[in-house]
């Protein structure tokens, strides 16, 4: 079972690398999908550039969301911010009802086309899962553990940095993972508002009814999302093992 998992990962990674670096290899396979001599391989830009732009957009947005969401999440779980906890719950609940596309569509009239509205939509929408999981993770730390740390003479800051945060980290990482996966999808849709990314390949295929482009773009986006999700899953388990919240 485990071997099968490693083989699937290696296969996925190789296929992704081939699709991005050696798109020509797939010409014979994609050729039958085109009509009237349309190009079978995406020819409106380098796939590697688009992949890097896509990953860059998601990385910047996710880092920004993570910093904001962590700060807010830590604030509302401290005594001084406790008043804001019910409100932040309400906002998270309402926010989850907004589809990411809607956030993207609303950002366009406000800030115009291009990368900026996509970045704003990504940051705003990516906040929710991280914020929610930060709160859950910090609140689920066993109070007796914190009490024990206090008894050992740890200051509030030390208790937070050395006890609470490491124990909550696996849950926070799960939120970050969810946020990144949602962002990968929203960034793809971002191509409809002219953000540079892999969605361009799929959109170009849809506009020119070129199924080969659609398949190419779809496969790269899907493989990238699945592999990143999987990698974060491995990281999460490693962190949880270190924190001792699961059995090794």
């Amino acid at each position: 079972m485990r071997i099968l998992g490693y083989m699937a990962r290696a296969g996925g990674l190789l296929l992704l690398a081939a699709l991005v670096f050696m798109p020509r290899w797939f010409e014979p396979l994609l050729r039958p999908l085109t009509e009237n001599g349309a190009p079978a391989i995406y020819n409106q830009g380098s796939l590697l550039d688009l992949t890097l732009a896509h990953l860059g957009l998601v990385a910047v947005a996710s880092i920004a969301s993570a910093i904001l969401a962590l700060t807010l999440g830590i604030f509302v779980t401290r005594p001084s911010g406790a008043e804001f906890l019910p409100l932040s719950r309400t906002i998270v609940n309402i926010g989850q009802v907004f589809p990411p596309v809607a956030v993207l569509a609303i950002a366009v009239p406000l800030v115009g086309f291009g990368t900026t509205p996509t970045l704003i939509a990504l940051i705003l929408y990516g906040l929710l899962p991280i914020f929610e999981n930060t709160i859950t993770g910090l609140r689920e730390v066993n109070p007796t553990v914190i009490e024990a740390a206090r008894g050992m003479g740890l200051s509030a800051r030390q208790r937070f940095m050395d006890v609470e945060l490491p124990l909550a980290l696996p849950v926070i990482l799960a939120g970050l993972r969810l946020s990144i996966v949602i962002n990968m999808g929203t960034a793809t849709i971002g191509s409809t508002v002219a953000a540079k990314g892999l969605g361009e390949v799929i959109i170009a295929g849809l506009q020119s009814s070129n199924t080969a482009f659609i398949l190419q773009g779809g496969l790269i986006v899907a493989l990238l999302a699945v592999l990143i999700y999987d990698a974060f899953g491995l990281l999460e388990r490693a962190v949880a093992r270190r924190a001792g919240t699961v059995d090794a």
């Binding site: 996966v181 990968m184 999808g185 793809t188 849709i189 969605g199 799929i202 959109i203 295929g205 849809l206 659609i214 398949l215 773009g217 779809g218 496969l219 986006v221 899907a222 999302a225 699945v226 999700y229």
Partner: peptide, 9 residues
């Protein structure tokens, strides 16, 4: 985890 546009495609 597959983004929606890719899935539709």
């Amino acid at each position: 985890t597959i983004p929606s546009i890719a899935m539709y495609g």
